[in-house]
Design a binder for these strands. Structure first.
Lengths: 363, 363
DNA sequence: TTGTACGCGTTATCAT
DNA sequence: ATGATAACGCGTACAA
């Protein structure tokens, strides 16, 4: 690690050409599978093997300059890199990118308008072929103007005018599954402690809760749902409000795992054992919490990895529409629809059947 | 977002030159602050302003090809992107990078030898100027051979032979501060529930615990420290072992916040109130847990952001030693020493003075 | 003080 | 079936 640069292998295309006894053109043709130019099978093999032997790999920078595309895609994330979930979406995008020979460039931006402009600008100056814009939580946004000039797909948010492909979690479906898990275990009175902010997740999860209730022929009782701040203390307060009464619910669906954590404390203080006296289902699958709580929390997972993966795929197709074999060659360009990804239930140990009506109370 | 490419601004250096009525050389010289070539102040100003006006920024790809350096640094992280801490180190590195005009490329790799080779190779093929290698947790590693050929700095790990700059947290110091917080509140019997894996963090935190005890004239009692798996259930088991006895400690230092979470449960089951009957200090500052627990957990923060930041700075200096003004011009190259960054205490509400000896027990 | 021309490593065009 | 060479956009040695 000295000033003297250790001669890094500078094996270039001409090295391969010389070694194989052909011209660089031929090497390039063969290695890039150029249709038009044909070479004898013998030459083809020889070039490929010597390239392999020398450990040749095209200099991406030179290639990018020539081809006028960087094969890099920018991931612009709004403060997301700090949240626990972020890693999963980055990972999903990263692995999908590698599969396609693309590389991911990260830029973390704040939610400040000015910063976003500046960071977007920086990204475009890097000649990224496209950008993934990830928001910190599911919501609706106006796309920064600069991004209009480059293929973009949104992660965990939708554009206000709907013109940009995006991928979001199926909040409603997730809530439906969660509540249904409670219903299938026999619960008939199910509370819901939720977020007081008016964001898509709040609306979607409430809708799922109502729909699950409705499908089971259960009535929606407004006093069974209480809103609070979506943190642990809020969960505690909301849970106390819902549970500290004689006709308390036997099942509780929580807006997220943090609120569920608060609900655990409320239950403990009220002498309610989980899941014997109270079954709980959370949302988000924050493993630190869900696995740390006792008993471990049954919850619904947000498909972060999958969103990252899907978004990258959509973006790649946007940039270079792949010749999908077998598809009817409709002349219209295959505009990518947005996706709504399912939120699967993760069963742990916080759900059980309610004590039957006649069964004596424990305390 | 159509097939028709929206003509992205292709303002190049010649556009600026033409517009300003000078040659490209002049523009380049001025914009790159080339010492040797001087231009009249008037020209200088005119060029700069027109460049600004046209929104010119050098094409990074062309520049990289010419300069033979990409201005990109690779962040190779071992499965780290999935852990909650990861974001902080990525963020630290990313922001430090932007300050220096560098960009970060992420590659997530597994701990599999083969994958690491392949990913490293991919990174080098991108002509990164240097790489940051981040491990999932603090430990000692052997640097992948390929990385020996490129400037590298290690994050959260040290190389076995000590030849590579690295940055790690001061585990011992952090533990010292944690235990000392307990001591300063008047605790004299302090338990320690720790990890059973033999990693640097285990050794360092134990050393810090012992040193703090020693400095306060307290005796080390081996039955006050118990090892378990470093997860919440392990914390529970260990805490029960330490606390379920008449001469139980009044203060408890936990290897990490997850184990502390288990300790909270143990305390609750034993009828011990926190912090009235038992004070607890954790380690890691996992906000989800530390802020979610009740009462909120006093803990020690790992300097993830700072490690990312420091590492990037060290790497940048390794790549292009900055002319540090005012530094004695020692002829020897300023080899970057490794760094050990402090772990600050984060006070919340789990520590209080112990009940005085004579005070009646609550239950 | 400024301009011309070459080279960075590839890919693409056009001869042969 | 293969090879010579221009071009990608910039930085800079060298000439003017």
């Amino acid at each position: 690690m000295q000033g003297e640069t250790v001669a890094r292998k500078a094996v270039g295309i001409k090295d391969v050409a010389r070694e194989a006894g052909v011209s660089v053109t031929t090497v390039s043709h063969i290695l890039n599978d150029v249709e038009s130019a044909r070479a004898s099978d013998e030459t083809r093999e020889r070039v490929k093997s010597t390239a392999e032997r020398l450990g040749y790999g095209a200099n991406r920078i030179a290639r990018s300059l020539r081809r006028q595309q960087s094969e890099m895609i920018g991931l612009l994330s709004e403060e997301i890199a700090t949240t626990p979930h972020a890693g999963r979406i980055i990972l999903g995008a990263q692995e999908a990118a590698r599969k396609r020979g693309l590389t991911l460039m990260l830029i973390n931006t704040s939610r400040d308008e000015f910063d976003i402009q500046r960071d977007t600008d920086a990204l475009l100056r890097q000649q990224v072929d496209g950008v993934l814009y990830a928001t910190m939580y599911h919501r609706e946004i106006d796309l920064p103007r600069l991004l209009r000039s480059v293929p973009t797909v949104l992660i965990d948010s939708t554009s206000r005018d709907g013109s940009i492909p995006s991928v979001v979690p199926d909040e409603e479906g997730g809530a439906y599954v969660a509540v249904n898990e409670l219903i299938e275990h026999g619960h008939r009175r199910i509370g819901f402690i939720t977020n007081s902010d008016d964001v898509p997740a709040t609306r979607g999860r409430l809708a799922g809760y109502r729909r699950a209730l409705g499908d089971a022929g259960l009535e929606f009782e407004s006093r069974l749902v209480v809103s609070e701040q979506s943190e642990t203390p809020g969960g505690y307060k909301a849970a106390v409000a819902v549970l500290d009464r004689v006709d308390r619910p036997t099942g509780l669906f929580c807006y997220n795992d943090r609120m569920a954590m608060g609900a655990y404390r409320a239950a403990a203080e009220l002498g309610l054992r989980i899941p014997a006296d109270l079954s709980i289902v959370g949302f988000d699958n924050q493993e630190l919490i869900a696995e740390g709580l006792y008993p471990a929390l049954t919850t619904v997972a947000l498909p972060h990895y999958e969103m990252g993966e899907w978004a990258l795929g959509a973006l790649a197709d946007l940039i270079q529409p792949e010749a999908v074999i077998g598809t009817a060659p409709s002349s219209a360009d295959p505009v990518y629809e947005s996706a709504v990804l399912p939120c699967p239930l993760v069963r742990r140990h916080s759900v059980a059947a309610p004590r039957s009506e006649g069964e004596p109370a424990h305390d």
